Amino acid sequence: MEFSEVVRRRKMVRSFTDEAIPAEAIEAMLSNAVRAPSAGFSQGWAFLVLDRPDDVASFWRVTTPPERAGDSSAWLRGMRTAPAIIVPMASESIYRDRYEERDKGATPRDQQQWAAPYWHIDTGMASLLILQTAVDAGLGACFFGMPKTQHEAFRSAFGAPATFEPIGAIAVGHPALDDRLGLSARTRKRRPDAEVVHRGRW
């Protein structure tokens, strides 16, 4: 598929069939994800792949806040049909360690000034590559947030170290025939280029 077609077709899929995902498709997503740029080539990311039914069920159990345990919303029902979940995680400490090295100024971490948390930004760029690779493989995917209140339960369930923070999760699978655009995409228009692109001066 042409790259421009991948970009055009990418959307957040929220309902999936029970068709199995080819193992090579998951591997392609991960292989492309680690090609994302990272500040200082720190590569402070990690990806937890959950593609067994018991693991996927455990993910939903530990990441759903207690007050939403009985939630029967269409969104949650649809998302729970995804046969695989990939959790992209970011490590701040890897970045700070990297910038303590000589070629990056050997700046002590308590003196480092970051314009933005690039460990999150870089892992976000890797996540986009996963979304695009899913489209290229004829699959659908959806990036969604994981409640902060559930991070410790998630770490405990899957043995994830405290030095890595989940920035969200990506549901992956074959799109269901009745999958529809989310409400925001159906009710809001894409902002025209003239509103968001500024040349030479704002």
Rank of each mutant, 00 (worst) to 15 (best):
140 G>A: 05
29 M>N: 02
190 R>C: 09
109 R>A: 13
199 R>I: 14
85 I>H: 04
190 R>L: 14
27 E>T: 12
123 T>Q: 05
31 S>H: 09
201 R>D: 03
143 F>T: 05
98 R>Y: 01
25 A>R: 01
137 A>N: 12
160 A>R: 00
176 A>S: 13
133 T>E: 10
169 A>P: 02
42 S>A: 15
62 V>S: 03
47 F>T: 07
1 M>A: 11
43 Q>F: 09
53 P>F: 05
96 R>V: 00
133 T>A: 03
120 H>L: 14
119 W>H: 04
14 R>E: 02
68 R>I: 06
66 P>Y: 00
93 S>D: 14
88 P>S: 07
140 G>K: 10
75 W>H: 12
115 A>S: 11
94 I>A: 09
107 T>N: 00
98 R>L: 12
42 S>N: 14
130 I>S: 03
91 S>E: 06
36 A>S: 10
173 G>E: 04
64 T>M: 08
125 M>R: 08
107 T>F: 10
140 G>T: 09
34 V>Y: 04
8 R>Y: 05
124 G>D: 08
128 L>W: 13
108 P>Y: 03
173 G>W: 07
118 Y>I: 05
23 A>P: 02
136 D>A: 15
43 Q>P: 07
126 A>I: 04
48 L>K: 07
124 G>I: 12
8 R>A: 15
154 F>H: 00
104 K>R: 13
103 D>M: 10
101 E>H: 07
157 A>S: 05
11 K>I: 11
15 S>W: 01
165 E>H: 11
134 A>V: 03
20 A>W: 11
129 L>K: 00
97 D>Q: 14
6 V>K: 01
7 V>S: 05
75 W>M: 15
123 T>D: 04
138 G>L: 11
200 G>Q: 03
44 G>V: 01
96 R>H: 03
145 G>C: 07
163 T>C: 09
112 Q>M: 12
103 D>N: 09
95 Y>V: 10
175 P>V: 14
174 H>F: 07
66 P>E: 15
25 A>W: 01
3 F>C: 06
58 S>Q: 15
124 G>A: 15
117 P>M: 08
116 A>P: 03
111 Q>M: 12
56 V>D: 02
1 M>F: 04
34 V>K: 11
159 G>T: 06
138 G>Y: 06
97 D>M: 10
104 K>F: 15
150 Q>H: 05
161 P>M: 01
29 M>R: 00
64 T>N: 04
35 R>T: 12
158 F>A: 06
102 R>H: 05
7 V>I: 13
46 A>Y: 10
12 M>I: 08
182 G>Y: 01
108 P>N: 00
193 D>A: 14
79 M>E: 08
87 V>C: 04
160 A>Y: 02
9 R>L: 14
68 R>M: 15
145 G>Y: 05
149 T>H: 04
69 A>T: 12
73 S>T: 15
163 T>Y: 11
150 Q>P: 04
71 D>C: 08
